[in-house]
């Protein structure tokens, strides 16, 4: 069996509908109803008073990226390039280098995410074998004065902490 097909009667063939005017007035009555209600009482508009009232960001929201770090602050990323390989927008640019602190052999010397090219699909997070990249900063609005400021370097990515507790993040279906 295929999907359920709902047949919707085609309208516009009766005389009343063909005259247009009556239907137009009906439509105008509807829109005026909205207008009048909102004019008298503008407290029930379906709007978010944005910069003053911030939306609550759910844990699963894919915000700006960050690189996670070990307890001692060193970067978790081992420059395996899985995120770069997986990135459909090709916005991740990594340069790998030798790691000397004994945590792994390899680490990113530079790790750039071009947020102007990023499509926030979250594939990098999915791909990461070490949970080294996350999109849990809760930053949903990235602004800048020039293009360069959208190119996040490794230090920018490490600087921001996650906006949620570890338990919430894990529960959030990451």
């Amino acid at each position: 069996m295929g999907a359920k097909v709902k047949t919707i009667a085609r309208r516009g063939s009766t005389l009343q509908e063909r005259i247009f005017l009556i239907e137009i007035f009906k439509g105008m009555a509807t829109t005026f109803g909205h207008f009048w209600r909102n004019l008298l009482d503008n407290s029930k508009l379906y709007v978010r008073h944005y910069p003053e009232v911030k939306p609550e960001i759910p844990v699963r929201w894919r915000g700006r990226h960050r690189l996670t770090s070990h307890e001692d602050g060193s970067v978790k990323c081992v420059a395996c390039f899985m995120c770069q390989t997986n990135c459909p927008a090709q916005c991740i640019q990594i340069q790998a280098g030798e790691r000397l602190d004994g945590k792994a052999e390899k680490m990113p010397v530079s790790f750039n995410i071009d947020l102007l090219e990023c499509i926030y699909c979250g594939y990098c997070v999915e791909a990461c074998p070490l949970d080294a990249i996350r999109m849990d900063t809760g930053i949903y609005s990235v602004t800048g004065k020039d293009r360069e400021s959208f190119n996040m370097g490794i230090d920018d990515l490490l600087a921001k902490q996650g906006a949620f507790t570890e338990e919430d993040y894990k529960k959030g279906g990451a």
Partner: peptide
Amino acid sequence: RGAGFIQDRS
């Protein structure tokens, strides 16, 4: 503003 109110926004 008219468009806003007609469309339930401000």
